[in-house]
Amino acid sequence: MPLDAMTDVSDEALLVLFANGDQMAARALTLRFTPKVMAHAYRLLGNHAEAEDVTQESMLRLWKIAPDWRQGEAKISTWLYRVVANLCTDRLRRKPGLALDAVPEPEDNAPGVTERIQDHTREVALQKALNQLPERQRQAVVLRHIEGLTNPEIAAIMEISTEAVESLTARGKRTLAAKLAGQRNELGYSDD
């Protein structure tokens, strides 16, 4: 039987099953949310080990709140994004000089290596630039442009108005562009 054999079951229903001791629901929720939480934590921190710690802690909080979860009040994903952001903020404040991961570059003899090295360089540059943004701007930009959420969804996660979300993402994007502009040639962007 596949690990997540409950693809048709809603997130909230799974959480109810989980709270009633259903181990299949535990597996399904783990598979459904852990990758999302991990990806988001990594984009906010830029450090794999720290992101894993935040992911485990976020999921642990979900398990603990499951018996008291109030149906219909918030989506589980919205709640988790909020928890991840808070935990990342705590870590960044405790460790302001948190080191970015040294991501291994593609091997030289692989096909299409030039393009992949260039993509890799750009990705690293974007992560570095993201890490230099103010926390709220970074969170808004990551949620909007990397997670692909809508402004109302982001507003619910960040507990601000949609206008404030628009302002944060616009400012964040402008700052990112300015920070990356100086590396235009290194990132392989020509004037054409």
Partner: peptide, 29 residues
């Protein structure tokens, strides 16, 4: 720089949880 292209690239390659992390999360559950 083409920010939208960069965002799309990053979106296509999300950080993946390790097998050990998945195991720890499930054990916690």
């Amino acid at each position: 720089v083409d920010l939208d292209h960069l965002f799309a690239r990053v979106r296509e390659h999300p950080a993946q949880p390790s097998a050990d992390l998945m195991k720890r999360v499930l054990t916690d559950a």
